[in-house]
Amino acid sequence: MTEPQKGPIPEADLHAYVDGFLPEARRVEVEHHLAANPHEAERVRTYLKLNEALHTVFDPVLDEPGPRQTRILERGRARTAVRYAAVIAGLIASGVIGWVARGLDINTASQDEDFVRRAAMAHTVYTPEVRHPVEVGADQEQHLVNWLSKRLGSELRVPHLSQLGYDLVGGRLLPGEQGPVAQFMYQDGKGQRLTLYLRTSGETNEETSFRYDRQGKVGVFFWIDGPLGYALTGELSKPDLLRVAKAIYQQLNP
């Protein structure tokens, strides 16, 4: 790749030249070669033009609004039967392992990490959605609650955060690591969105304090309260987010 000047330039180096991968010295050599070989020079120019055309044509996709993310759910539901079979098998296995591991506190940390990561991901994926941020809107709140309660197999309640300036947008069902999870979305007057992510925790009497994690721009407060695990996610400062988390906790534990 670095034989000194003259001689034919290997095809690979011509492409590396086009793609800007050659070290400076070699690049100069290739340019000399091209100056003396108009046919090859023409070919290389066309390759450069092709790269440019690819960007002209496809770079606008980078700035398009997010994909129509509702479909992920529709297809997710079609696969639910298969998933449940796997989940049931997994529950049997993890039930045994969980029982053995109990007291050793194995897995708890990574489970929390996974929960927070999924909550943050779901937040990041769905809050920018303009047309379909939720599957069921706040105008059908009762239906939303019944539906999600049924799917999660636990009675859910939707906290109301209007006194903090956040109105319920609606909610959606998502696939979680251990069965379905729910996401409620809230929005304030400026369009700032918060999501509350809920999963069934498996344990029925567990209760944890608020814990906090940050995933990039997104802050997450998470806690377990009886049969449900909660993760409140938003691009708020930690104290602001905590205020909302506390309001939710108080509403659910009057």
């Binding site: 996709v61 980078l62 700035d63 991901m121 995933q215 990039g216 997104v218």
Partner: peptide, 19 residues
Amino acid sequence: GKAEEITAYIPRLRRYARA
């Protein structure tokens, strides 16, 4: 954050998928 790391690549994945 991890979630953000993945979502940062969404536009590029979309561009590639479209092409």
